[in-house]
Amino acid sequence: MTLFLGIAALAALMASVVFLLLLPFTPGRRSRLLGGSIGFLFTSITCATLAYSSDLVKLAEYAREGKNGSPDDCGTAMDCWLDKSWRTATLYCPAIIERFAMRDFEWIDGLLEPKFNGFRLENPQGSAVTMIGDKLRFQNSSGEWLRMTYECDVLPDTDIIVDVRVDARD
């Protein structure tokens, strides 16, 4: 959620800068461009504030659990380990998974839908978390599209991807 709000704030800020740069070249529409620029600027400030406040809420939760306010120190909190693993897998695994395609590939997830919809714990002490997804199709040599299942093993304490597997779905 924080990443989405940060991206939305950046996009709105860039749109307001574009509107401000267009002001000198559109003499008859200055009031509309200025209004749009102010609107996008307000949106970017609102999104940035929401992203920052959600980070503050997360820090407060970690502090309340006795973790000195550090989200990097998960301890035995399983939701913290899963959150870190999900972020790492979402950022780095799709590019690695795409390299498994012999011909073409197609992600069939929605715009705001996550690519990983499940997980498996290899070791309850938090050594490796396997993130699992099935929102991908590969094209085989005869041109047919096959639905694939993919797994990404992540070490959440170091944000290292250990292994990636892709198999045809039954």
Score class of each variant (00 low, 15 high):
156 P>H: 13
15 A>T: 04
16 S>L: 00
145 W>I: 05
77 A>S: 15
134 D>T: 11
73 D>W: 12
69 G>M: 09
124 P>M: 14
131 M>D: 07
101 A>Q: 11
35 G>R: 00
111 L>E: 14
35 G>H: 00
8 A>R: 09
164 V>H: 03
30 R>E: 00
159 D>Y: 10
13 L>H: 04
153 D>F: 08
136 L>C: 12
92 Y>W: 09
74 C>K: 06
131 M>F: 02
20 L>H: 03
43 T>C: 02
166 V>T: 07
64 R>W: 11
13 L>N: 03
133 G>I: 09
159 D>Q: 09
68 N>A: 15
84 K>Y: 02
170 D>H: 12
71 P>G: 03
56 L>E: 14
45 I>E: 01
16 S>R: 01
145 W>T: 08
20 L>Q: 09
90 T>C: 08
28 G>C: 08
146 L>G: 13
77 A>Y: 08
38 I>Q: 00
6 G>N: 15
53 S>R: 14
135 K>H: 06
81 W>V: 02
25 F>T: 14
127 S>R: 15
2 T>Q: 08
62 Y>N: 06
37 S>A: 15
70 S>K: 12
19 F>A: 01
15 A>Y: 02
81 W>G: 02
70 S>E: 10
7 I>D: 09
22 L>P: 05
129 V>F: 10
131 M>E: 02
114 P>K: 05
60 A>L: 13
50 L>T: 03
110 G>T: 15
42 F>P: 00
49 T>V: 06
109 D>W: 01
27 P>M: 10
28 G>V: 07
124 P>L: 12
17 V>S: 02
79 D>Q: 13
169 R>M: 13
65 E>G: 10
5 L>G: 09
67 K>G: 10
143 G>Q: 06
122 E>C: 03
24 P>R: 02
125 Q>Y: 06
92 Y>F: 14
94 P>I: 06
96 I>C: 07
107 W>Y: 00
124 P>V: 05
71 P>F: 01
169 R>F: 13
43 T>N: 07
84 K>Q: 13
103 R>A: 14
45 I>A: 08
18 V>P: 06
50 L>I: 11
99 R>W: 02
125 Q>A: 09
165 R>V: 11
7 I>V: 13
24 P>Q: 07
105 F>G: 08
91 L>V: 12
19 F>D: 00
77 A>W: 10
53 S>M: 11
85 S>I: 04
103 R>S: 15
135 K>A: 09
49 T>L: 07
25 F>V: 12
116 F>L: 01
43 T>W: 01
143 G>V: 11
102 M>K: 14
27 P>V: 14
102 M>I: 15
166 V>F: 04
153 D>E: 08
52 Y>C: 04
